[in-house]
Deep mutational scan, measured.
Amino acid sequence: KLETFPLDVLVNTAAEDLPRGVDPSRKENHLSDEDFKAVFGMTRSAFANLPLWKQQNLKKEKGLF
C-alpha cells in the first residue's frame, strides 16, 4: 500500500514540491480512503470505472492533476 498524505500536501502542488515517492500523475493514489471519498464523492472503485477522460477532468477540477 502506498503512503498517504493529507489533502493540502497534494492539492495544487507542483511535481517538484510533492513528497518523495509521489507520482505527480497519480496524486489521488496517495489520499486516504476517507479523503478520496470526500474529494471525489465516490469510492476508488467507482472512480476507476469512469472513462479516463472523466477521471482526468475530475482530477483537474479538484487540483489533483
Score class of each variant (00 low, 15 high):
P19A: 03
E3F: 08
A48V: 09
F5R: 03
K27N: 03
A14P: 13
S45A: 14
L31V: 02
R26E: 06
L64H: 03
F40V: 01
P19E: 04
F47D: 00
E28I: 05
K54H: 12
E28N: 02
F65R: 06
P51D: 06
D35G: 04
A15Y: 11
K60Q: 11
L10P: 02
Q56A: 13
D17Q: 10
L31R: 01
A15T: 14
V22G: 02
N49R: 13
K27E: 03
F47P: 00
N49L: 14
K1P: 13
L10G: 03
A14E: 09
D23T: 05
P6Y: 02
H30S: 08
L18H: 04
L2R: 11
P24T: 06
N12Y: 06
R20I: 15
F40D: 00
P19K: 02
L58T: 02
A48G: 11
L64Y: 06
K54P: 00
L52S: 09
M42T: 03
L58W: 04
L58A: 05
D33N: 08
D8L: 10
L18K: 02
D35P: 00
N49E: 12
P6F: 03
Q56H: 11
H30F: 09
E16H: 12
P51W: 01
N49C: 15
F47L: 01
P19D: 04
Q55I: 03
P24V: 08
G41E: 11
D8K: 09
R44W: 04
L64R: 02
L64K: 01
F36E: 00
D33G: 04
E16G: 11
V11F: 06
Q55L: 01
L50G: 00
D33I: 05
E16W: 02
Q55P: 00
P24G: 06
N29F: 12
T43L: 09
E34R: 08
G63R: 05
K60A: 11
L31K: 00
V9W: 12
N29V: 09
L10S: 02
F36G: 00
W53I: 09
N57G: 11
P19W: 01
F5T: 02
K59G: 01
L2F: 15
Q56V: 14
E61Y: 06
F47C: 00
S45E: 14
E28G: 01
K27Q: 05
N57L: 14
R44P: 05
N49D: 14
A48Y: 15
P24R: 06
K27W: 05
E34D: 12
Q56F: 11
